[in-house]
Amino acid sequence: MTTGEVLAGRAYRESTTSRRLEFRRQLGYFLLLLPTLLLLLVLFVYPIVRLIVTSVYDGNHFTLVHYRRIVEVDLYLRVLQTTFTIALQVTLLCLILGYPLAYFLATLRARTARLLMILVLIPFWTSILVRTYAWMVLLQRQGVFNRWLLELGLIDEPLRMMYNRIGVLVGMTHVLLPFMVLPAYAVMRGIDRNLLRAAYNLGASPFQAFLRVFLPLSLPGVAAGSLLVFILALGFFITPALMGGRTDMMIAQLIETQIRTQLNFPFAAALAAVLLVITLVIFAIYNRLLGIDKMFGGGY
C-alpha cells in the first residue's frame, strides 16, 4: 500500500472516531493493564508499603529516628553515593560495550544475529559463584592475564585487577551487559533501513546518517537497556562484595546485614525506602528529560 493510502486511511479513521469510541479504546487499554496492576498492587505495593510503614511507626507513634540515623551517620550517605557511582559506571561501560555490539548484530542477517545472541546470553547460565571464581582465576595477582602480560613483557609488576573497583566493574558489567544488548538490539532491528538509504541518497555520509537518523531512532532501546542496567546494578551486592575492595560497599549489602545480623527490620526498611525513592525520582527525571513518550511513536 502506498503512503497516500495510509494517509487516507488515517484521515478516514480520524473523521469517524467519536469521543465515545475513544473512551472505549482507552478503557480497552486499561483492561489490558488491569491484571498486571492488580498483581503488583496486591503482591508488591501493599506488602512493601506495610513494611516501610514500620520504619516510621514504632507501634505506638510516628518516628523519624531511622531516617535521622541515615542522614547523620556518614557511612550511609557514603555507601549510597558509592552505590550510585558504581551503578552509573557500570551503565556507562555497558553502553560503551553494548551499543556497538547491538549495532553490529543489527546489521547482520537476522538468523546470524540470533545465533550470535546465544553467546550474549551465556553469562546468565553460570552461577554467580563459579563465575566469580572464574574471574579470580583470570584476574588475580597470579592469574592468567597477569601471567600472559608478564611473559609478553608488557608489564613488570602484576596489575591489580581484582579486589578493587576494576574487579567490581568487570564482574558487574559482565552480568549486566545482556540487559543492554537485548533491548538495544530489539529496537535497532525494527528500524527501517530505507531511512538510512534515503539519508545516503540525500548526500549524508555514513557517519552523518548514523548520527542523525539511526542513533535517534535507536534511543528507546538504549534508554530501556540503560534503565535496566542502572536499576539492577543498584541492587547488586554479592559480586562487589566478592570482587571489590573494602570501599566498594553497596547499599543492598547494608540492608542485608541489618536484617541478617542486626535484625533491625525497621532500619533496613528505612534504607530500602531511601533507595527506592531516590531511584524512582531519578527514573521520573530520566523519563521526563528523554521525553521518550513524546519524541517517538507518539500516536496520541
Binding site: I231, E256, R260, A268, L275
Partner: peptide, 11 residues
C-alpha cells in the same frame, strides 16, 4: 511497574 527491580530482594 519498575519498582520491583529497585527494592532489594530481601525486603
Amino acid at each position: 511497574i519498575v519498582s520491583p527491580l529497585v527494592v532489594p530482594a530481601i525486603i
